[in-house]
Every structure is written in C-alpha cells, then in structure tokens.
Deep mutational scan, measured.
Amino acid sequence: VVEKVLDRRVVKGQVEYLLKWKGFSEEHNTWEPEKNLDCPELISEFMKK
C-alpha cells in the first residue's frame, strides 16, 4: 500500500513516481510507472506542492 508520493520523473517518455510504502522504511522506496498506480488521491496531493 502506498503511503506517500515523494517525487516525479519522466523516463523515456513515461511518468514515474517515487513511492513511500506503508510499513516500510525509506530504503524500500521505489520508482513506479504511473500506469501501474491506483492512488490518484496521493498523486493529486503531491502535485499540489
């Protein structure tokens, strides 16, 4: 389960987000493609920053 979106990048035309996973430490954060995500409210919250 995604706890928080930390960053955004574009790699080869694909948007990816750096995710903080609930119950895991920062060392387990991962970059995931936008198309694989199902957390629009967290993405929206990140984009407001």
Rank of each mutant, 00 (worst) to 15 (best):
I43S: 02
W31L: 01
L18W: 07
K12G: 14
E45L: 07
E16Y: 15
N36I: 04
K4T: 07
R8W: 06
E16L: 09
K48H: 08
K49A: 06
E45V: 08
L19Y: 02
F46A: 03
D7G: 09
V2T: 07
R9E: 00
T30S: 14
C39L: 07
W21L: 06
K48Q: 15
R8T: 12
G23S: 08
H28A: 08
T30H: 05
K48P: 07
K12D: 14
D38C: 06
F46R: 02
V11W: 08
W31K: 02
H28S: 10
K20Y: 02
G23N: 14
P40I: 08
V2H: 03
N36C: 06
Y17I: 02
L37D: 02
R9G: 00
K49F: 15
M47H: 15
F46T: 03
D38T: 12
S25R: 08
K48Y: 05
E32T: 13
S25D: 13
P40Q: 11
L42K: 10
R9P: 00
D7L: 04
E45D: 05
K20W: 01
C39V: 11
P33L: 14
V11E: 14
K20F: 01
P33I: 11
E32H: 04
E41P: 06
T30M: 03
V11D: 10
E16M: 14
P40A: 13
D38Y: 03
E32R: 12
V11R: 14
G23M: 09
F24I: 10
V5G: 00
E45Y: 12
P40M: 15
E34D: 04
S44T: 14
E26D: 15
Q14P: 01
W21N: 01
D38L: 09
K35W: 06
S25W: 02
K49R: 12
K35F: 06
G13D: 05
E27Y: 09
G23E: 10
Y17F: 10
E41C: 10
V10N: 04
E45N: 08
I43R: 02
H28W: 03
L19S: 06
V2P: 12
D7M: 04
K48G: 11
L37F: 12
K22I: 08
R8C: 09
V1E: 15
K20S: 10
R8L: 06
E3S: 05
K12A: 08
K22E: 12
E27S: 12
K12I: 01
S25H: 13
D38S: 15
E26Y: 10
H28V: 06
N36Y: 03
R9H: 03
T30W: 02
F24R: 11
V10T: 13
P40N: 11
R9C: 00
E27I: 14
L6M: 11
P40W: 11
C39G: 03
V2D: 01
Y17E: 01
S44W: 09
E26A: 12
L6A: 09
L6R: 08
L42D: 04
K35G: 13
R8V: 05
E41W: 10
S44F: 08
H28T: 06
L18C: 09
K22H: 09
K20T: 05
R9A: 01
F24M: 15
V11M: 10
P33M: 14
S44V: 12
E3M: 02
V1L: 04
I43E: 02
R9N: 00
L42Q: 14
E26M: 09
V11L: 13
E45T: 06
E3R: 00
P33Y: 12
T30Q: 08
V10W: 02
W31S: 01
V11G: 05
F24P: 08
F46P: 01
K48R: 08
V15Q: 05
E41S: 13
K12T: 11
E41F: 12
E27R: 12
L42H: 07
K35E: 13
K12S: 09
E45C: 15
R8Y: 08
H28C: 13
P40T: 15
G23R: 04
P40G: 11
E32V: 12
E32P: 00
W21G: 02
E3H: 04
E34K: 03
P33T: 10
G23Y: 06
P40V: 12
C39H: 07
I43W: 04
R9F: 00
R8A: 06
G13M: 04
T30P: 01
E41G: 13
E32D: 03
F46W: 13
W31A: 01
Q14D: 14
E41V: 11
D7R: 06
M47E: 13
V11Y: 05
Q14K: 13
L6V: 11
C39N: 06
L18F: 12
G23T: 07
K35C: 12
E16F: 10
Y17W: 07
H28L: 09
L6E: 09
K49N: 13
E16P: 00
E16V: 04
K4G: 05
K20E: 05
G23H: 09
F46C: 09
S25G: 15
Q14R: 13
I43M: 07
R9L: 00
E16S: 05
L42P: 05
N29V: 11
K12C: 05
S25T: 10
K22V: 14
E45S: 14
L18V: 00
T30C: 07
E26L: 09
K4W: 04
D38P: 05
P33V: 12
K49Y: 07
K4S: 12
K49D: 11
Q14G: 14
F24W: 08
F46H: 10
K48A: 15
S44K: 15
N36A: 13
G13I: 00
E16W: 02
R9D: 01
E27K: 13
T30L: 03
K35L: 08
K22T: 10
E16I: 03
M47I: 15
T30N: 05
L37R: 02
V5R: 01
C39P: 02
L37K: 01
E16G: 01
K49G: 14
V2M: 08
S25K: 07
G13H: 14
W31H: 00
E32W: 12
Y17P: 00
L42T: 05
D7Y: 03
K4R: 07
L6P: 00
N29L: 09
E45G: 08
G23I: 02
L37E: 01
K48L: 09
K22S: 11
L42W: 01
G23K: 05
W31F: 00
R8F: 07
P33E: 10
V15A: 10
N36R: 10
K35A: 12
L42C: 05
K12E: 14
L37G: 05
W31E: 01
L6Y: 04
M47D: 14
W31C: 00
L19A: 11
C39R: 08
V15P: 08
K48D: 11
L18I: 00
R8E: 10
F24H: 11
M47C: 11
K4F: 05
V1R: 10
V10R: 07
C39W: 02
E26V: 12
N36G: 11
Q14E: 15
Y17H: 00
W21S: 01
F24T: 11
